[in-house]
């Protein structure tokens, strides 16, 4: 009996030693999705894109996802543009963003955040049920243990964003689609 106990303790100990093993699959998948979205969304043509300026992703209410994105941004670019991740503070400026991710810890402020970039070419992404109705362009949802996404074409259009059909093919739901 004691031997067994020791073993379990030992195993917990050996696990400790492996710091840095990524556990949070959900955040990794969501971070990868954000990269895909950036690839399959066209922003209105502007100077930034031509000059190879960084693509900036603002993250609020999702610290671990932000960390995951930062790790990715060190290694991967989107369409030859380096990716810059900005962890946003409540009430802080939202200018210069191409993507705004509002995590569920900021759900209470989501409406105000989305409203403040409404009409601007910012791809708003959320991760809670019903957030499309609050005005976001893409909402990540959990369906049958999988992370999927729903898209609002009308919100995309009001910000001048074009979403490729490749992305729409995979979407779980599409809102505002022409009949």
């Amino acid at each position: 009996m004691w031997r067994l106990l020791c073993c379990l303790m030992l195993s917990a100990g050996s696990a400790l030693a492996v710091d840095g093993a990524p556990a949070d699959i959900e955040n990794q998948i969501k971070a990868s999705y954000l990269y895909k979205f950036a690839t399959y969304v066209d922003w209105p043509a502007g100077d930034a894109e031509q000059s190879g300026a960084p693509l900036t992703i603002g993250v609020i209410g999702a610290d671990s996802l932000g960390e995951e994105l930062k790790k990715l941004s060190l290694k991967y670019a989107v369409r030859n543009r380096p990716v810059q991740v900005r962890m946003l503070k409540p009430g802080g400026p939202l200018d210069g963003l191409q993507i705004l991710f509002v995590g569920q810890h900021a759900d209470a402020r989501a409406q105000a955040l989305i409203d403040s970039v409404a009409g601007q070419p910012v791809l708003t992404v959320t991760e809670s049920a019903g957030m499309l109705a609050a005005g976001s362009v893409i909402n990540l949802v959990r369906v049958d243990e999988r992370i999927r996404f729903e898209v609002s074409l009308s919100h995309a259009k009001s910000g001048g964003l074009k979403i490729s059909s490749r992305l729409l093919d995979v979407a779980y739901k599409i809102e505002g689609k022409a009949p």
């Binding site: 998948i29 990868s32 999988r146 992305l167």
Partner: peptide
């Protein structure tokens, strides 16, 4: 434990959209 460092943390980034869509989340 020994295996942990073999697999890069970023391997999801290389999945296709369909694969991401189908990946079961075990967290």
């Amino acid at each position: 434990a020994a295996r942990a460092d073999d697999v890069p943390a970023q391997d999801f980034i290389n999945l296709s959209l369909e694969e991401l869509n189908n990946f079961r989340v075990t967290s």
